[in-house]
Design a protein around this nucleic acid. Structure first.
Lengths: 212, 212
DNA sequence: GATTTATTCATACGTATGTATTAAATGTCG
DNA sequence: CGACATTTAATACATACGTATGAATAAATC
């Protein structure tokens, strides 16, 4: 799976074959089928291996932060940090996974959609809730859009990070993380201006994807 | 090339074969080789077809804005808008191209690197210059990082935009663009805090990618 | 130590890939 | 018309793909 992570991250799902994977992992070709059954399964399991833990860490940080806040809404930067810190940490420990998750989230293979829905969406909902409490003046539509933009920034941060091989300097890591948090939080929290209203006014008749 | 744009955007370079492309374009397989020579060339030409014009538009808008400012540094939001507006417009007109450019910029195929260097980098340099004048307090490192994040946000915006098939309502378009601009500009312009200094202090010995 | 279970191995299947080739058909324009 | 460019058609080539198989080997269990 380490080899799969590296090669999938480098060349994408379709860019690498089972033979290359087997050779890179120094195992027999048949061993891959034996253990994973199919290429898709291998991809899914390789992806979820870290993605699950990553999401759990996010939720854990947020829960801890909220508990420490005693019911007060958290500052935006605090929430953002709960989102970003696990990404940065796992990304630094496993640079190839960074590229893999960037590819995967930007253009998810269809066989991963269900897993993403079950693993990622609940997570996102929790954070959306936290942001809504922290930013009551930002309309839900705008917040959703901004979260997507924040995700895009995070993905790009990930590939940049895996491009320049940071050599695990704790202070440097902290500085990069803080820059990412600052950028994102600033964009998320900026005043909605007349745009929120305008967006709402132009809203098409039937809506169905609000959290109600 | 329209078919190529759609299929490459949907499935990526390795996700689609020449036969599928030919069939989707309703031409013979040999016609593709006849006109483009190879699959890579087809991808490159399909990508550059709009990417070139997009960059030219960006530069044009920025030049016009700077001329209208009579030597004063432009407001950040203005610069960002010059960057984003062409993306949004071409993205709305050609949703498939949006996905294609997102895939391409997030994980560029090696045969495109040279073209990206020659087409995209000079463009970026110009905008970096504008931002440096507009944000003299933000260190160059931080600005570079933030621009990468902004690019990530833009890419994600593009795929979101092509996902929800906006039906070309000028007001809605303007609202979305303005939201993107606002988010990005806010992140780019936010105060660097102690982080810039910290980042500079932790800078590794040899540097070589500054604009000097 | 024998027997069952788990894992590796080399190899093979059918299909799909990108590209090239040949000849005939269709279009274009001087 | 005649010269040329384009398009179609039908393959063909070598290679790569994901997956499957059955025998050989290692581990585990009794």
């Amino acid at each position: 799976m380490d080899a799969a992570e590296r090669l999938f991250g480098e060349h994408g799902y379709n860019g690498v074959g089972m033979r290359a994977l087997a050779q890179s992992a120094k195992v027999n070709l048949a061993a891959t089928t034996y253990h994973f059954g199919s290429k898709k399964t291998l991809y899914v399991e390789t992806f979820l291996r870290r993605f699950r833990e990553l999401n759990a860490q996010r939720l854990g940080l947020l829960a801890a932060a909220e508990q420490a806040a005693h019911g007060q809404p958290l500052p935006v930067e605090r929430i953002v940090e709960c989102m970003m810190r696990p990404s940065v940490e796992v990304g630094l420990a496993h640079p190839a996974f960074n590229k893999m998750v960037a590819r995967t989230l930007l253009a998810p293979p269809k066989f991963l959609l269900e897993h993403l829905k079950s693993e990622f969406e609940p997570n996102l909902k929790v954070f959306i809730g936290a942001f809504e409490r922290a930013l009551p003046t930002v309309p839900a539509d705008v917040l959703n859009l901004r979260l997507a933009l924040a995700l895009g920034a995070t993905l790009m941060f990930g590939v940049q990070m895996s491009a320049i091989r940071i050599k695990r300097d704790a202070k440097r890591e902290a500085a990069f993380l803080k820059e990412l948090v600052r950028f994102t939080a600033s964009g998320l929290a900026c005043p909605p201006a007349t745009l929120g209203a305008e967006l709402a006014r132009l809203r098409p008749p039937a809506r169905r994807k609000r959290t109600a």
